[in-house]
Write a protein that binds this DNA or RNA. Structure first.
Lengths: 226, 226
DNA sequence: GCTTGGCATATTGTATACAAAATGCAAGTG
DNA sequence: CACTTGCATTTTGTATACAATATGCCAAGC
């Protein structure tokens, strides 16, 4: 592919519908387990059933929907086992991303990440959880971008979307939050030192901690929400 | 999910069409880069365009097809970069499978794997390459099953299908074949010893070797086919 | 009173008709 | 002669009509 092509990605109706539904599912507009009535959704999205059904197939392949023959589609409701399994795979993927990133990271990348880390620590100091989550996500995405593996990036984003469909509020108490921020600082240090094994290890531990927190909040109704 | 439900999986027309196309792509009935004419495929598969298009969406989500707006679908043609990236992710996934399998493997599992290993070595001695590939695949699938992570299994199978769509004939010469068989023996030993780190390491090396072989055969027209 | 059978309704599944876009070809122009 | 331009044809995109299946309700039987 040379740089002279500018493919206009006029997204088709099925893609647009899928994107809209994806957002609704991840942001909670459609609750886990919710049954999706085709005719009703057609009206809400302003498309006919054919493109909507193609969108369903796409989202089902991503694991955001389950389609039961002759009984329609519903938003996936992840079991604790699904969450455990999903985070285990995420940890392996992020670990790989760390190893690959070490081999390709530039000094500019590290400077960018340090700036993001500073923003994140500021959000942490100000107890600004939404900003923290936002920057956190950007940092992880950036790491994946540095890794430069398209298949990894695609797999990561798909699985991440599925886990986010939980709309989990992990029981992120103060101690865990402090811990997570510290881990991020170590990660950037490992990346700057080009220590792939250490970075992989940190990322896997980081994800395991998140896994434990999410699983705990799934079991505890009264989990501490911060 | 309790064990008392027996959902009859009457596969729908789109699913059946997708399965048929998947087989055609993986086994070479449809060559990489081939343009898929909807009307023609409808006749060949005996379905109308609506379910066929839903099948297209499913396969595109699996990465077996690419769909260009207003220009139809075509079988994916993987670049060397895609292959490199794909095998890197596969290695990470198999490594995880090894680590997880160690924690759950039973003595029966190990006995089964040893029997498969013996079959594989017999195929190797008889230079029966198809049988070798078949048993090899069964062993890797079995390892994933023992790992008991549904998300991992799903991700693994999808990516595996995409890589198999290459219909690669790696330049598997005698030395590499001997090496691969020996590696398999070591893997089973590591599993029997419940040594997760060693098994992970072996699996990753094993996949890296395969990656190199496939990449080499992509570059060399005259690669040694055995 | 609870279950079962059958009917009416609603919903999903598939085929097809129509619309929009791309493709290929031929004629015209510099 | 190469390049463009316009038209006919093909192909894809979307909506809708019809078919098949599931769902819910009510009545009848045990």
């Amino acid at each position: 592919m040379d740089g002279s092509s500018f493919p206009i990605a006029r997204s088709s109706l099925p893609e647009a519908a899928a994107e809209r539904l994806r957002t609704l599912i991840i942001e909670g507009g459609l609750q886990p387990g919710a049954k999706l009535n085709e005719r009703e959704l057609c009206e809400r999205l302003g498309v006919s059933r054919t493109p909507l059904r193609e969108a369903f197939r796409m989202l089902a392949a991503d694991g955001l929907l389950v389609q039961l023959p002759n009984r329609g589609a519903q938003v996936v409701a992840l079991s604790p086992d699904d969450v455990r399994d999903g985070f285990e795979v995420m940890a392996a993927l992020e670990g790989l991303a760390g190893e690959l990133a070490v081999a390709r990271v530039t000094d500019n990348d590290i400077a960018d990440l340090r700036a993001l880390q500073a923003e994140m620590e500021a959000a942490h100091l100000q107890h600004d959880l939404p900003a923290y989550y936002r920057i956190n996500r950007i940092i992880h995405d950036r790491l994946n971008a540095i890794a430069g593996n398209a298949v990894l990036g695609q797999t990561y984003r798909t699985l991440n979307a599925r886990l986010h469909a939980l709309r989990f509020r992990s029981n992120l108490n103060r101690a865990k939050w402090d811990q997570a921020v510290a881990e991020h600082r170590s990660m950037i240090a490992a990346l700057a030192a080009r220590d792939g094994a250490a970075l992989r290890d940190l990322l896997i531990r980081h994800l395991r901690a998140k896994q434990q927190a999410v699983l705990a909040s799934m079991n505890n109704q009264d989990s501490e929400i911060l």
